[in-house]
Design a protein around this nucleic acid. Structure first.
Lengths: 164, 164
DNA sequence: GACAATTGTTGTCGTCAACAACAATCTTCC
DNA sequence: GGAAGATTGTTGTTGACGACAACAATTGTC
């Protein structure tokens, strides 16, 4: 029932020149409506742009925020553990931590138990900074509520809880 | 109520070596749960990977599918119109169309009304191919249903309808 | 007809996921 | 105890993608 209606050709104007459909935005999406992936992609672009803008004054991007949050809540984790938990590659986490360590927000401490791994901790400066980031992130979250509605946002989090 | 509970320090083990929390996945996310952006990002990664895998036999990625769908439903559109409708940059659409044109799925026809623009059409081969792509895309959509539930998928589409 | 705007194109830059390879270190197994 | 295999952090490459700037050709406007 989702896209089987494509049998009824939705063709509009085939060979003739461009009508004034070009500049208007009444362009049909056909089977694209009904695809969760498309809606999710558009929403994700919007939500990330708002996050980046809202936390622009502190220059923190979504991935950086997620790393700081996980380290703050679980001090001493290894890079592998953080990467696995957040679903990012450990190769990518290296650069993220390099940046955060340069900004004195995070420190890598050589683990004595396993000398391959690093125990990740927030610096004192990183803790106070993260508190500020969280306030701004909450502000961003209110923007989401304003966009899709408070109840819808709650329902969304509930539906997607299995991915966190 | 979403993240103000961060006042109660969720700190666990601070200075001591790594416990066996590293390999387990019982790592708290703290304020990250409750952020729509994080859940949406993880979901988007999952859904795109499934789309790419499901349409792997025809080598079609989500963005390519969206372009083909819009052109198929609105033949004669200009590149600018397609780009604006799908929220992708016209610079990027150039490469996408180059690829699709090489594969004989799409053709650019010089518009006689506005000789700057191209009227985009599917080839005959492109139409039959798109029909196959849609069947595979429906199969992918059933994977989504299996993952989050039929009702939840419907609700999700409804919530995010304002972004399509 | 001069000037601004639009369309397609090319190019660069930065983010991000996916892989592959490597040295150092740990674990396992004999 | 030592060899073989696995793991951790690191470096590098590749490709998709969004953002931006510049350009020629063309159109619209005044």
């Amino acid at each position: 029932m989702i896209a089987t209606a494509a049998r009824t050709l939705p063709r509009k104007r085939s060979g003739n020149g461009a009508s004034r459909l070009d500049d208007a935005d009444e362009i049909g999406l056909d089977a694209l409506v009904g695809h969760a992936g498309y809606a999710v992609r558009r929403f994700q672009i919007w939500i990330f742009q708002d996050f980046i803008k809202t936390l622009g004054e502190v220059d923190i991007r979504p991935t950086q925020y997620s790393v700081l949050t996980v380290i703050g809540a679980n001090p001493g984790l290894s890079q592998m553990a953080v990467a696995k938990r957040l679903g990012i590659e450990r190769a990518r986490l290296v650069h993220l931590l390099d940046s955060l360590e340069q900004r004195k927000l995070v420190k890598r401490i050589k683990s004595k138990a396993d000398r391959r791994s690093h125990a990740l901790h927030l610096t004192a400066q990183g803790e106070t900074a993260l508190a500020r980031f969280k306030r701004l992130a909450d502000e961003h979250e209110r923007h989401v509520e304003a966009k899709i509605g408070k109840a819808n946002r709650e329902r969304l989090l509930q539906i997607l809880a299995c991915f966190t």
